[in-house]
């Protein structure tokens, strides 16, 4: 497991060695903040000292933005042929998968945490509940990890980054739409309520919502962590195939 460190370091710094990191960070922050201030977010109109109107868009935003980070993880290595170099170094597939995943996750975490001026703004304008805010940040970071797990997996399936992006987007969309009320109502009309409930339980939205209310429920944490574990396991399988 000691070999994860150099792999993590290379991958993480790799984002910053190319313009990818800067383009990504700037567009992520601009888009997320403008959504909060838009008439859909009503950041000011709501008159509450919370970041709810900021984080409410995250499941949707991640659907597009995490695949942009994850699509290159393996596709790029396959296209450039460096995968042959990587897997003839004395490392196991699991170490490679973890090193890359953790680097991507760390990068996404930085992106999320860079929204701190929003939190400071709220703190300046009112008396927000800092506990709720911390829980929301934790939820967002965990959710980003789950999205990234899916994207890393789809990236391992193809050497074409465009295909990788579209596949990730589609897969992530499924996990978002499962929790939409319009979708669950339709589902409940066809399936027994218990089954429909189970299906909608797989949605990111359902599990993220609790965090935005300040509830850190172990079952939500476990949901995101186990989804990461499962996709990373499949990632290893896909690469060793």
């Amino acid at each position: 497991m000691s070999q994860i460190r150099p792999l993590f370091k290379r991958e993480f710094l790799g984002y910053f060695r190319s313009p990818v990191a800067y383009v990504f960070l700037v567009s992520f922050l601009v888009i997320s903040v403008s959504l909060a201030f838009s008439r859909y977010g009503n950041f000011f109109k709501n008159g509450t000292a919370s970041l709810e109107s900021y984080f409410i868009f995250f499941p949707w935003l991640f659907m597009f933005i995490v695949p942009a980070v994850g699509m290159r993880l393996w596709s790029e290595e396959k296209r450039a042929g460096t995968i042959e170099l990587l897997f003839t170094l004395p490392i196991t597939t699991l170490e490679a998968v973890l090193g890359k995943f953790l680097a991507g996750w760390a990068f996404l975490t930085i992106a999320i945490l860079l929204s701190f001026p929003m939190a400071l703004t709220v703190g300046f304008l009112g008396q927000p509940d800092w506990g709720v805010m911390a829980a929301t940040y934790l939820g967002a970071i965990l959710m980003a990890g789950a999205y990234l797990g899916i994207c890393a997996l789809t990236s391992a399936l193809t050497k074409n980054q465009v295909i990788s992006f579209v596949l990730s987007l589609a897969a992530c969309a499924v996990f978002v739409f499962l929790g939409l009320s319009s979708f669950t109502t339709t589902l409940e009309s066809i399936l027994p309520v218990s089954v429909a409930d189970m299906v909608s339980n797989f949605s990111f939205v359902t599990h993220f919502d609790a965090f935005t209310k300040g509830i850190i429920d172990p079952k939500d944490v476990i949901f995101f962590l186990s989804l990461m574990g499962f996709t990373l396991f499949l990632n290893v399988v896909a690469l060793e195939r």
């Binding site: 290379r10 060695r17 042929g81």
Partner: peptide, 22 residues
């Protein structure tokens, strides 16, 4: 490997340090 693949965005020194560390 054939056609000597390497990470294009790294400098020669960074790349060799990475390989050495692994």
């Amino acid at each position: 490997p054939e056609s000597a693949p390497a990470y294009p965005e790294m400098t020669v020194e960074e790349f060799l340090c990475f390989i050495a560390e692994v």
